[in-house]
Amino acid sequence: MVIAHRAGTSDFPENTVLAITESLKAGVDGEWLSVQASKDGVPVLYRPTDLSALTDGSGPVAGKTLDELVKLNAAYDFKGPDGSYPYRAHPVHIPTLEAALHVMPPGKQIYLDLKQAPAQHVVDAVTRLLDEKKAWDRVKLYSTDAEVTTLLSANARAQVAEARDATRQRLAEVVLEHTCRSTPPASSWAGFELKRQMTLEEKFTLGTGDAAVTAQLWTPQSVACFRSRSARTPIVMLAVNTPGDLRTATRLAATAVVVDSPRTILTGAQ
């Protein structure tokens, strides 16, 4: 499956209904959406820690009510191919998660990446909405925050990726130590970048040395390790943004790939 990262962050203003609808037109199989919660506990689609990063507002999402958030232009800083800001004169607003669920057709996969601290605030907000909409079977849940993952995993209805730290550790063990010590829990799935910029640190008697490397931790051996308990364990490879990376992920039998530009990957447009 080809999944639009932040609904296609390179093609249209990320995490907006516009981006969702346009990426669906391009032919994606699903959406990867960033979720935070407003001050009054409504889950909305927005990624950075401060609203000034993308909008004409400022401050954290949790510091504003939904009524305040929907007045902001979520595409204020989105640049077009010519370097202009096409949406400053035509605002695109921050959507609620409910609105995103409404425009997603049946059968399309939805990944929700919970981004906010404190973790309990966003977990409670998303839980309430999924309960209300009876939408647990429509979504898979992810977070780089271990506390969010722990809170979500306590809910038997949640399809949660294992903690990112656990995935990274397992991948490193296979690639660097050539050993498969453990596999993900049977009910979870795993998500990690196909290639990742990392710092390799070596310790000496008199100090340390480090080097920046681009590491590909998904290999035939690491995929086999993750699927040694069950051949059906879902593996999602993130940051697959070139035709070569797509071919690599396909050879590795990824369940899904997460792409920044569905328009490029699926239609060949630049």
Rank of each mutant, 00 (worst) to 15 (best):
R6S: 12
R6D: 00
T9E: 14
T9Y: 13
S10D: 14
S10Y: 14
F12L: 12
F12C: 06
F12W: 15
N15M: 03
T16E: 03
V17W: 03
A19Y: 07
S23M: 00
A26K: 13
A26C: 13
G30H: 06
E31Q: 15
S34N: 15
S34M: 07
Q36T: 10
S38M: 02
P43N: 00
P48Y: 12
T49R: 14
D50L: 12
L51E: 08
A53V: 13
P60V: 12
P60E: 11
V61M: 04
G63H: 06
G63F: 06
T65N: 06
T65F: 05
L66S: 04
D67A: 15
E68I: 05
E68L: 10
L69Q: 09
V70H: 11
K71I: 08
N73R: 08
N73D: 13
N73Q: 03
A74F: 10
A75I: 08
A75L: 07
Y76C: 08
F78I: 01
F78N: 01
G80Y: 09
D82C: 06
D82H: 08
S84N: 08
S84A: 01
Y87F: 15
Y87A: 00
Y87Q: 04
H93D: 05
T96D: 01
T96N: 06
L97V: 02
E98F: 07
A99Q: 15
L101Q: 10
P106V: 04
L112A: 00
D113H: 07
K115L: 05
A119Q: 08
V122I: 11
D124Y: 09
K133W: 07
A135E: 04
T144F: 15
D145A: 03
V148W: 10
T150G: 12
T150D: 14
L152I: 00
S153M: 13
A154L: 11
A156F: 05
A158D: 09
Q159N: 14
V160H: 04
A161E: 00
A161T: 09
E162P: 03
A166S: 14
A166L: 13
A166R: 10
R168H: 12
L171I: 00
L171Q: 02
E177T: 02
H178M: 00
C180A: 01
C180V: 02
R181P: 04
S182M: 06
T183M: 11
P184I: 00
P184M: 04
A186P: 11
S187P: 06
S187Y: 10
W189M: 09
W189F: 15
A190C: 13
R196M: 12
M198A: 14
E202L: 14
L206S: 11
G207M: 02
T208E: 11
G209T: 12
G209F: 09
A211F: 10
Q216V: 03
S222T: 14
A224L: 03
C225A: 04
R227L: 04
R227D: 03
R229P: 03
S230C: 01
R232I: 02
R232P: 04
T233K: 07
P234I: 04
P234F: 06
I235K: 01
V236T: 05
M237C: 07
M237L: 09
N241P: 00
T242G: 02
D245W: 12
R247W: 06
T250K: 11
L252F: 06
T255M: 01
P262T: 01
L266P: 00
T267Q: 14
A269F: 04
A269K: 15
Q270H: 14
